[in-house]
Design a protein around this nucleic acid. Structure first.
Lengths: 351, 351
DNA sequence: AACTTTCATGAAAACGTTTACGTTGAATGC
DNA sequence: GCATTCAACGTAAACGTTTTCATGAAAGTT
């Protein structure tokens, strides 16, 4: 059925060893035989059996991507960034998305065992240091995305949530808003934590006299709506609301509209993520942009480094900066969109 | 380093054959030895070497997904649907997204050779019958998504664009709009063709006296904007504009707003796809919803069938219906959102 | 009790590669 | 002209599984 290296060898009248050498460009073959082998292979439409090769080589030329069940832009852009860069490294991408909870993730991780040379893990609730210790095969190059585990067994690449929120607060304060309320994200979410930390730090530094107002949300649109209602019910209305992500900001916007408030005239609004919807709501939403595809690309590069040099210590933490995107919802603005880099990527440690 | 079946055999004091039988539940093993083997395997954290297994089994338990370079919702939801269903079939997903042009796709296809047991191809310009004939390994189960090739070598699963546009036109006509203008999609896009065909058919049937007005677009937001400007410049304004996708409808909306027109008061508007943005523009956009994750799921099921029964003739064409989503932009409506099924999935041929 | 049947088990052959090792023949150095 | 070196090439041994086949013991049948 399938044509094997033996068939090529017979066709080219050489041994299988020579076919292998010729096709892999390993040298030790005369140019004329190499030519003959190549022609024979082409004639027979030979393509090497990946499994057989992997068996002896101990290389699959495949990397895994493990991610929670998420929809939309973030997922697709991340995969895009990873895939593009993987291909440029000659690697394939085995995706396991949409698992829910630690058990599910553990099963997916186990199933990838032996099928991949390295793995990118987007952290999610339940995927912590203990989880990795228990489920990650020892010695498998690993890159953790948006994670606070510092296991030493994996490189970590994070979005610079802290700098992003900080920069947005600075922008809002610069506009004269000091009473800024913050709508936080889920308790078990790493990004949410960092964003809140950034907000607290920025407020302490840039508007130390303003009362700190943080109301709970969960990254969902309706939680933003409810948070906004809560804020409006209080005696003094904040001058600006900064939601920890865009979907919640959209929920806030809805609540403000219903309350008859003008945004940004009566109250300014900002989000985080720069999802596509952000530019299409009225007024367009000021937000912090995360360059997701670039995050994927950097993760893949990191992983490729780890895979190339097995001796390389994995323990390193990297950060990808974000930009703040100024649109109309925060009141700084008439017309187009302007973008300000919050921080560039930098390596914070590593070897 | 890695623990192999031999180690397990030694640990359990049986032969490798028995380990294999015990672990695969193939029978021919006494319950007590099976237990002993299982314990030994667990103790050693044994996980079978996939490549070795594939070599002898001729099964990779992996399916490939080949798709063009696309962003956003469609990509992520499709992958989600495919991955979820693949996992429930015990299959892995090898993704090759973001290739541009036929050469790129051919390379990706070749690279997948021997690594997958089947493949889902989302068609894109350049991926036609000739392309598949040339690059698709004979006998590899294949499902084509949104494709008009009827090669007989692959099953085809399409969105029912025709029924979707037809139903939307019926809805618009039911609202009293007969002078409906259509903004078409790219010439080389299969979906765009079908949607235009559906529009023409619906108009011929449901509003035979109205002049047929079709203006060219390319699925991009700005092309929708330009198309709308063109429509407004004509002597008689259409009562409704139906864009072949949502992004163009958003572009139209922008143009209408600039022209001081009220939507839907002065002019009704509808799109196609139901991207997330559709519900967040003002007014919210009526559109035709494609259940993308379901499309992915169905594609995977189809592929699994093909993989299970090698004798099964691949030549079949399937269709997934869409729903029309009525929001405010078409004027039928105050308040929430209502959804109407345009057509259910049905098999049109196959064996 | 002698036989057949059933069934758990182990030995060994496959699967398609890469690669360490030997063999060859020609080219080089004396 | 002989010993030495060297590159090209072939042989065969791995890699870790599954699976076929042979073996022998236990159970069932007459």
């Amino acid at each position: 059925m399938a044509v094997t290296i033996k068939d090529v060898a017979r066709e080219a009248r050489v041994s299988v060893a020579s076919v292998s050498r010729a096709l892999n460009g390993a040298g030790g073959v005369t140019p004329v035989t190499e030519q003959r082998v190549r022609e024979a292979a082409a004639r027979l439409r030979y393509v090497p059996h990946g499994a057989a090769r992997s068996l002896i080589t101990r290389r699959t030329h495949t990397v895994g991507a493990l991610m929670p069940d998420l929809h939309g832009e973030f997922f697709s852009e991340l995969i895009r960034g990873i895939d593009l860069e993987a291909r440029s490294h000659g690697l394939h991408l085995l995706v396991s998305s949409s698992h829910d909870g630690a058990d599910d993730a553990a099963a997916a991780l186990r199933a990838m065992q032996g099928r991949v040379d390295g793995i990118v893990i987007l952290s999610s609730p339940g995927v912590d240091a203990a989880f990795l210790k228990a489920n990650l095969p020892e010695g498998l190059p690993t890159v953790l995305l948006n994670s606070d585990v510092k296991s030493g067994a994996a490189a970590v690449l994070n979005i610079d949530n802290f700098a992003g929120t900080y920069a947005m607060v600075r922008h809002l304060v610069g506009l004269g808003h000091t009473r800024i309320a913050f709508v936080s994200g889920p308790k078990d979410n790493f990004d949410a934590h960092q964003r809140e930390a950034g907000f607290r730090a920025a407020m302490a530094k840039l508007a130390p006299d303003a009362p700190l107002c943080i109301v709970a949300g969960n990254f969902g649109e309706s939680s933003g709506y409810l948070a906004a209602r809560e804020l409006l019910a209080a005696k003094t209305r904040p001058q600006a609301v900064f939601a920890a992500n865009d979907m919640m900001a959209v929920g806030c916007l809805q609540a403000f509209k219903e309350a008859g408030l003008d945004v940004p005239g009566d109250i300014a609004l900002a989000g985080f993520d720069d999802i596509p919807i952000a530019r299409y709501v009225t007024p367009p939403l000021s937000t912090v942009r995360v360059r997701i595809a670039e995050l994927g690309k950097n993760a893949m590069d990191l992983l490729a480094d780890l895979m190339d040099c097995p001796g390389l210590s994995a323990a390193s933490v990297h950060t990808l900066g974000c930009d703040i995107v100024v649109r109309e919802s925060c009141g700084a603005h008439r017309g187009g969109t302007s973008t300000i880099a919050a921080k560039k990527i930098h390596r914070s440690s590593g070897r």
